[in-house]
Amino acid sequence: MSDKNVNTNIQKESSDSETQKPPLRGWGGFTSRFVPINIENIDTDQIIPARFLKATTKEDFGKNLFRDWRYYNDDESKTKADFPLNMSQFDGEILVAGKNFGCGSSREHAAWAILDYGFRVVVSSFFADIFKNNALNNGVLPVQVTDEFLQRIFLQDNNTELTVDLEKQTITINSTGEWERFEISSYKKTCLLNGYDDIDYLLSIKEDIEQFEIQRV
């Protein structure tokens, strides 16, 4: 399976605004099959083991995503056949995982690896705080659903598509029509939809920050 060759059906957003960074595609409603990893408490050491944190750039982490669950003895020719990333029937830009996803270390490399592999959305019934922030800061959308809805997704077959609509804040199982609303702060939503980030905002209020520094002494 190639890392980025995914089956998607992205509806183009009609946008006429020019932003410095390419705005994230298709958040108005994007549809994809999904890769299920039905394991709880997946920590960032599993998402990207520490020995791969020695890079000084953000690129190329995708090949080491879930490294020790994908290969025997760290050998790329010895894939573990029963791990979903290695199963050809699973594909898509949506990763669906068990509850408490992304616990453990603060390494943003976990979000970089997920993005670089080709996922844009992670669905779980619970996310660790730091991971959630890191994902959002990199344009990966964490979609928190109820335990019941998560189990409904895991029951679907591998051809099922999910539709994630950030504007409406909904996730739908297309084959059954079941859907659920998810939470995201309106600030983060605006950031994602427009492709700008926290630094842009913080830089824009530099005077307030300097004023604060003067007042507190």
């Binding site: 603060s106 943003e108 730091i130 890191n134 926290d198 630094i199 913080l202």
Partner: peptide, 9 residues
């Protein structure tokens, strides 16, 4: 603890 984007911020 924070992520690297936040370190930059």
């Amino acid at each position: 603890g924070i992520g690297t984007s936040e370190v930059e911020m």
